[in-house]
Amino acid sequence: MDTATKFQEAVAASKTLTEKPSNEILLQLYSLYKQATEGDVSGDAPSNPFDFVAKAKYAAWEELKGKTKESAMAEYVALVGRLKG
């Protein structure tokens, strides 16, 4: 099975986790998903200084800048695998 197929299965599996992951894990999932589907972050960071969630999401995605889509997919699959046990 190719990486893209495993990634799509992991995305579906991430929605059926028995426990809600911590905020840190959710940020990892978000940033890996965005890097895998859209590539490097683009645009300006959120300008509202009180939108902490948007700022955290942007920063997490920005940390993955330069990572290939395939690598991000593989890491996402591995992370979801660990979460499912």
Rank of each mutant, 00 (worst) to 15 (best):
V80A: 05
A13I: 00
T3D: 13
K55V: 00
G66C: 11
A13P: 02
K6I: 00
D40W: 10
D40I: 11
K20F: 04
T37A: 06
P46E: 10
K69Q: 15
A74S: 15
F52Y: 11
V11G: 01
K55G: 12
G66Q: 09
A4H: 12
N23S: 14
T5N: 07
L79Q: 05
E75I: 08
E75T: 02
A56E: 12
K15H: 12
Y58Q: 02
L29Y: 10
Y33E: 13
S14E: 14
K55A: 14
A10H: 04
A12W: 02
G81L: 03
N48C: 02
F52K: 07
G85R: 11
S22Q: 09
D40H: 10
M1Y: 11
D51R: 00
T16W: 00
E63D: 15
S71Y: 00
K57M: 13
Q8E: 13
E19I: 11
T16E: 15
I25D: 01
K34E: 15
K69A: 14
S22G: 11
G81C: 04
L27P: 09
G66P: 11
K69C: 02
E38D: 11
A56T: 00
G81A: 04
K20C: 00
I25L: 07
T37S: 09
T5E: 10
G39A: 07
S14H: 12
Y33M: 08
D40Y: 07
K84Y: 03
S42G: 09
A59R: 08
E38G: 02
L64W: 03
K84G: 01
A45C: 02
E19K: 15
K6A: 14
T37Y: 03
T3L: 12
K69H: 07
S71W: 00
T5G: 03
T3Q: 13
A72S: 14
L79A: 05
D40L: 09
E38L: 14
K20W: 02
T68F: 01
A56C: 06
E24K: 15
P21E: 05
L83G: 04
V77P: 02
V11R: 01
G39C: 09
L79F: 09
K84A: 14
V77C: 05
L27G: 13
T5C: 01
S14F: 08
